[in-house]
């Protein structure tokens, strides 16, 4: 059924990952980048330039507060370091952005547990199932065995969608005709143990944080997983759509409160949306960490970014590449 698509994906020449992200973010750059480069080349550092920079950040969904913070930091640096021209100011903004986003980098290391259980959560339509399909491919290419758990027992045909991804990757999918998402995930982990599978990817139904009963339901899924292995789920990942604006902050907050998130996946970066909300998320994480410095809680990491429709287009996040592609 998917032979046609599969072939075209397989035949695409393998490009290095940085180049791929760059290509994926080309449109992003097209909107934010051209603006910025025109800005920077144009003239000396003056008040209007800061204003326009702030505008560019807001237009990229970085949020009013984070943008203001970044510009304030940039102003302070400009006062002491006296950049000669706009290009140097641009380098400083990039440094600020990289400093802000670098703590979000983390490589997913599946070696420490078997099976490594990764649970996915997110609002409706954020791209959970598609991301799981792509991640299955990612782990397969690392030579690890993967099992998918069709924990979205609610949405019409969500199960079939995951099964199709399983077929594409030659990966087993554990699904039930209907019923309880906790039970499906429970079965899946048991099956993974029996077959000594390396990684279990558990899908869940999309839900909005305002639907309190559904938030309770997903907490239960996590509890069920922990029953089998107190260490599991080893990763709880929130899938965010790069198109989403400031509500992403609420989503992170609510899902973290319910589940204790360990990471994020940012999808759909290949459109014109800039995903700048990550900057807002990082800024908020930094200020809350500064407030409670003693807590051992590590900052939320951004594990993967989705930069295209192809099965290979979900890649580990690199702050430098992201910022380079964003501000060029």
């Amino acid at each position: 059924m998917f032979g046609l698509l599969k072939k075209s994906v397989d035949q695409a020449p393998a490009r290095p990952w940085a180049e791929r992200l760059r290509a994926g973010l080309a449109r992003t750059r097209g909107v934010l980048g051209t603006d910025l480069s025109a800005l920077f080349k144009r003239r000396n550092v003056d008040e209007a330039l800061f204003g326009e920079l702030e505008t560019a950040l807001i237009t990229a969904d970085c949020g009013v507060e984070a943008s203001a913070q970044l510009i304030a930091a940039l102003r302070a640096r400009a006062r002491s370091e006296r950049p000669a021209d706009g290009a140097e100011l641009k380098r400083m903004l990039k440094e600020e952005l990289i400093a802000l986003l670098a703590p979000l980098e983390r490589a997913l290391e599946p070696a420490h547990a078997r099976p490594l259980v990764i649970m996915f959560a997110g609002v409706n339509g954020s791209g959970k199932t598609t991301s799981i399909g792509k991640l299955a491919k990612f782990f397969r290419s690392q030579g690890r065995s993967v099992l998918l758990a069709a924990g979205d027992t609610f949405r019409a045909a969500a199960r079939e969608q995951l099964v199709a991804w399983g077929e594409r990757n030659g990966v087993t999918v554990i699904a039930q005709a209907s019923g309880d998402p906790g039970a499906v995930v429970y079965d899946a982990i048991n099956a993974a143990r029996a077959r000594s599978i390396d990684v279990v990817l558990a899908d869940t139904a999309g839900r909005l944080p305002t639907q309190l009963h559904l938030m309770e339901e997903i907490k239960k899924v996590k509890r069920v997983i922990a029953k089998l292995d107190p260490e599991a789920p080893h990763e709880v990942i929130l899938v965010l759509d790069a198109n989403i604006g400031q509500n992403a902050l609420n989503q992170v907050k609510a899902f973290d409160a319910a589940l204790g998130l360990t990471g994020l996946v940012l999808t759909k970066l290949d459109g014109t949306a800039k995903g700048g909300v990550v900057v807002a998320i990082a800024a908020q994480a930094r200020s809350s960490l500064a407030q409670a410095r003693s807590t051992s809680k590590r900052p939320l990491s951004l594990l993967f970014v989705g930069v295209g429709e192809g099965i290979d287009d979900l890649r580990p996040f690199s702050a430098r590449d992201f910022v380079d592609a964003l501000v060029e």
């Binding site: 698509l5 399909g133 019409a156 045909a157 969500a158 079939e160 969608q161 099964v163 199709a164």
Partner: peptide, 27 residues
């Protein structure tokens, strides 16, 4: 015809709504 099981999804949504559904195939 692109997203896996998208047609399947509309089919079951149509059934829930009690509306007629014309089958199509991703090929």
């Amino acid at each position: 015809v692109y997203r896996p099981a998208a047609i399947e999804q509309l089919k079951s949504v149509a059934a829930q709504a009690g509306a007629d559904f014309l089958p199509s195939d991703s090929s």
